[in-house]
Design a protein around this nucleic acid. Sequence first.
DNA 1: GCTCATTAAGTTGTGCACAACTTAGTTGTG
DNA 2: CACAACTAAGTTGTGCACAACTTAATGAGC
Lengths: 152, 152
Amino acid sequence: MVLVMDATPRLREQACFALYTASRAVIGLYRPMLDRLGLTYPQFLVLMALWESDGLTVTELGDELQLDSGTVSPLLKRLEAGGFVERRRESDDERRVTVHLTEAGAALESRGCEITQVVGEASGMSYGELIALRDKLNEFTAAIHDRQSTTE
Amino acid sequence: MVLVMDATPRLREQACFALYTASRAVIGLYRPMLDRLGLTYPQFLVLMALWESDGLTVTELGDELQLDSGTVSPLLKRLEAGGFVERRRESDDERRVTVHLTEAGAALESRGCEITQVVGEASGMSYGELIALRDKLNEFTAAIHDRQSTTE
DNA sequence: GCTCATTAAGTTGTGCACAACTTAGTTGTG
DNA sequence: CACAACTAAGTTGTGCACAACTTAATGAGC
């Protein structure tokens, strides 16, 4: 194997591009299924976080999804308008807003679970392969976040 | 190992979420470096495609990047405004528009190559590991696109 | 009690993505 | 030639992402 490190980087040889494309592809697979529930993929992620632990604050949700308040705030606004969640200004600290599932939002849990199954199967990978890929990706993300904080 | 397939899907256990997060993380690593060149990550991808083969049509670029004309057209408009590319309406088929690097756009090739090197190193993975990850991701994307076309 | 730094959430502006649509040019068939 | 079907690029509208900023509430130190 020859490493031609100083050649022009080709699009299809780049791991980063493969990542970008794979991410969009899987979200595209979710789309028609989530459409039927009236959700987008990021909205679905919020619900997943709340099914696991209802009543998170906006900041906690952002930490969970790796998104800042500029993304999460309007996302929650739309989820609230859709009747999936409710926002409550906390009385012990008026800066904090906790997010709670409505009955409709909680009721989607089993349908949501089914959807993740279908997507997993469509990947053409075994459960073990998916776990391995997930762990490799999380390792990759962690390495990048480390580099981010040290070099700046 | 126990497979609890009917349990609530947990965010951090999902390969799809790992993919979504990893993709955003790597683009975030590119951002400050590309900022210095006056580029965004998708704009950088367009230039990579053109460094490899200048004069592609809008549709060919879209095929290469897996993006439709609704995304590519405004992207090219901004790249043209930035002085990186030039669009030419073809005279033999007036529907077609070919995209050509300007001198400034072509001149970024070596800087762009350096940036991909730096990002690759920041991943904390060896060259071989990155290749393996890339191939796994492309396999994943291909399986999903197959499923998309068969099940509609 | 006051002031100032900090924190939480939200707002504004830019640039993707993508669906749905429009416009204009080309091609195939009668 | 006529005209319908098709194709290429672009436009419009919605919803993320993210940087930069604003507003409001809290807490620490004096």
